[in-house]
Amino acid sequence: MEIPYIVDEREDTGLINSKLGIWIFLASEVMLFGGLFSAYVFLRMAAPPGDFAHWGAELNVPLATLNTLVLITSSVTMVMSWASLKLKDFEKYKIYMALTLLCAAIFLVVKYFEYTAKFHHDIFPSSSTFMAIYFTLTGLHGLHIIGGMIVITYLWMPFGNKIWHTNPEHFTNRVEVIGLYWHFVDLVWIFLFPVLYLI
């Protein structure tokens, strides 16, 4: 007996397994970053007034704004690649996926320059509680980006997308699922950006 509802939706829930699975995973991710955001607020309230804002002023807002735009763009190209598959346009899918990957890489490179600039000014996670939480949150977010890039690369490479030719719907679902993950990583950044850089 095969496992049902991999491609077809179950009647009473209207869902396929993988979509439900990824949403539960994202729920747990909400709680993971929720724990860290909770720690941020807790420590900010425990620190002397102005301490967080003072250290926050050390960060590079223009670079982070650029990064925010890059990540939003990658989210759009991701959803466009899924839409291309829906339109059965495999070539466009490959282009959009490559663009997503490119945006992710730009994001990481910018992040790398931000980090090394801090290290050059002798600012490390141990410098202050704000810097500690800044490096932890952005570092964990960066790891999520890298994780997403690995899966996107896999789905872009020929051995990852050969299932398109035998079962296009199954492959489209896979792209939708990684897309959901990718948008979530984008969503986390949308909150990280003002919380760390602006306030």
């Binding site: 989210s75 991701m78 959803v79 897309g179 948008h183 950006f193 003002p194 919380v195």
Partner: peptide, 13 residues
């Protein structure tokens, strides 16, 4: 940020 987050969750996701 909440408005942006809702847009991403609502439309992209």
């Amino acid at each position: 940020a909440s408005v942006k987050g809702s847009l991403v969750a609502g439309y992209f996701m």
